[in-house]
Design a protein around this nucleic acid. Structure first.
Ligand code: ZN
Length: 569
DNA sequence: CGTTTTTGACCCGCGC
DNA sequence: GCGCGGGTCAAAAACG
């Protein structure tokens, strides 16, 4: 019954000993001109665990941790939207906001106030009734402003939050539409609710399920369905066998386990759930988005937390392929596999699969929605084979997603799964970027350089978040314009009104929508991180350890790998 | 003590 | 039906 015994085991990670010094490099890179999408070793992606000492390339900078901390220390006081909101994402935003505010009007007053205050004591002695009065008044005003400030912050947070939620929702919807025949159109929209949705949506998202709202319960099944692919093996304990169809729920108790066998049979019950979903999910699952980038680091920091659950020698190349799964939420179906390119070991290929079922920090959003958008486009674009549509969409996508990078997107039909590949490895000099501003600056090979709209980072700092937002939007539009009708994208711009009906255009629009904001977010993150970096530099987290074993997988030896089935059976 | 990594065993689809 | 190969599971070890 059991799967047979336990495997072998054990591990060994002890080898980590070999640290290299790449860290330094990382820092250097950090400092280098191209801040966004820069290589950065740091960032321990994950949290806890044994330090993953690794250098990571950080596409979408994420130092959420730092951010959080700093924010907290800053005295964020209340603002507890907690969860959803709290996610680093907002944190970052907040940070920005805060910064701006400070630099703006308040600051001066603040400072002056403070100064006065200090001086006050002395002044007091001198006895200035008037001053005192003024002081009081100012204080009052100050507090009022603070108040307001906070309130605004809160609002912003909320808005931001719901925006993201909507965004995700949209993607989901789009996918659903694509998949479903005309028939039952209206379901999804149901939960718009507007306000609260922020909390709900994300979860539901995961479920994708119609009923989603009820979340927990619904989720389970759906979730399992999500896993779709995996259920098969649910072997773990004999339970599963019987499962096929029964046991609706043993409820949630078991709930969240990732499905896999985990002793839960129920999951299959989910199967019943409905073909659509299943089908849809299946498709989703199939769609893959892979990103090729140059990186010394063993993995790319995309803002999510990943747990490695497997490693295998790939057939065609000496480098092993590692499998990771998202651990930000318990049931998150997202997986990714990382592998080094055989010919050029400096190229790291990261393949994402699935959609997150939980809110993400902005840093993660960037990558996540990029991939999800890519996936949807891929799926919606009818089969990849169709060059016309396929290519176009891919190009569009590439441009949308990483406007400034010279990335190229390609869709391969050959693979078992439809796959979109974003290639960030070439750095064509004269790249035809959407933004003419491109600073032609010699960059390190392989780094994408992201020309800021302003022509450099510096100016960007000064800009308030909104400016950034607009700009990014702008750039997005511009890009999109050349391949598709810009008009369509214009609509989505309104944060709220989502017309979307046409499947294709919708998907395109969705892509645009999702992509743009992300870009923004990424920028914001990058900027704020940099800013933070100034004082926080020393901070432990800042760039964390990445010791790195520089060489990728030292595992080379692993004889093991090829084993496949060699053994029993 | 909770997490994450390591790693051999499993599972399963597919081609022959 | 067998075997290959891609993925996944999960015990045990490594970390913090
Ligand atoms: Zn996730």
């Amino acid at each position: 019954m059991d799967k047979g015994h336990l495997g072998g085991g054990g591990g060994g990670g002890g080898l980590l000993a070999l640290d290299a010094s790449p860290r330094q490099l990382g820092f250097l890179n950090l400092l280098s001109p191209a801040p966004f999408l820069r290589n950065m070793e740091a960032d321990d992606g994950g949290g806890g665990g044994r330090g993953r000492r690794s250098i990571e390339v950080d596409f979408f900078s994420d130092e959420k941790k730092n951010m959080k901390k700093s924010r907290a220390s800053a005295g964020a006081d209340a603002d507890d939207q907690k969860d959803q909101a709290s996610a680093a994402g907002l944190a970052i935003k907040k940070e920005d906001l805060t910064i701006n505010l400070l630099s703006g009007n308040n600051t001066r007053r603040d400072r002056s106030m403070v100064v006065d205050d200090d001086g006050a004591s002395r002044a007091d002695e001198d006895s200035n009734g008037r001053n005192t009065g003024e002081l009081a008044a100012m204080q009052a005003e100050l507090s009022r402003m603070n108040d307001e400030n906070q309130r605004l912050r809160g609002m912003l947070t909320q808005v931001n939050n719901s925006y993201h939620a909507l965004q995700m929702h949209l993607v989901t919807l789009m996918q659903q539409r694509t998949q479903m025949p005309p028939a039952q159109p209206q379901q999804p929209p149901t939960h718009e609710e507007g306000k609260n949705e922020s909390a709900i949506v994300p979860r539901q998202f995961l479920g994708l399920g119609p009923s989603g709202a009820s979340a927990e319960v619904a989720e389970e099944p759906s979730n399992s369905s999500t896993e779709v692919g995996s259920p098969r093996r649910s072997s773990s304990n004999g339970n599963e066998d019987p499962e096929r169809g029964d046991n609706p729920d043993g409820p949630s108790t078991a709930g969240w386990l990732p499905g896999r066998g985990m002793t839960q049979q129920q999951q299959l019950g989910a199967a019943a759930k409905g073909h659509d979903q299943q089908a849809q999910e299946a498709t989703m699952r199939k769609a893959r988005v892979s990103v090729r980038a140059r990186s010394e680091a063993p993995i790319i920091a995309d803002g999510c937390q990943w747990r490695k659950y497997g490693q295998k020698m790939a057939k065609g190349n000496p480098c092993p392929r590692a499998y990771y799964r998202c651990t930000m939420a318990t049931g998150c179906p997202v997986r990714k596999q990382v592998q080094r390119c055989a010919e050029d070991r400096t190229i790291l290929i990261t393949t994402y699969e699935g959609t997150h079922n939980h809110p993400l920090p902005p840093a993660a959003m960037a990558m996540a929605s990029t991939t999800s958008a890519a996936a949807s486009m891929l799926l919606s674009g009818s089969m990849p084979s169709a060059d016309g549509a396929g290519l176009m969409s891919s190009n569009f996508l590439a441009r949308t997603v990483l406007p400034c990078s010279s990335s190229m997107a390609t869709i391969s039909a050959s693979a078992p799964f439809p796959t979109v590949t974003l290639d960030l490895t070439h750095a064509p000099p004269g790249a035809p970027n959407a933004m003419p501003l491109n600073v032609a600056r010699p960059h390190a090979p392989g780094q994408f350089h992201v020309p800021m709209p302003g022509g450099g980072m510096a100016p960007a700092f000064a800009m308030p978040p909104q400016m950034l937002y607009n700009q990014s939007k702008f750039s997005g539009l511009q890009m999109s314009s050349d391949s598709v009708d810009a008009g369509q994208f214009a609509q989505p711009r309104q944060p709220m009104g989502l017309p979307g009906q046409l499947s294709d255009s919708v998907s395109a629009a969705a892509a645009a929508i999702t992509a743009d904001p992300n870009f923004t977010v990424a920028l914001a993150a990058a900027i704020s991180s940099i800013m933070a970096g100034q004082h926080a530099a020393g901070n432990s987290n800042a760039n964390n350890n990445n010791t790195t074993k520089n060489n990728v997988t030292t595992t080379s030896n692993n004889t093991t790998s090829n084993n496949t089935n060699s053994e029993t059976q």
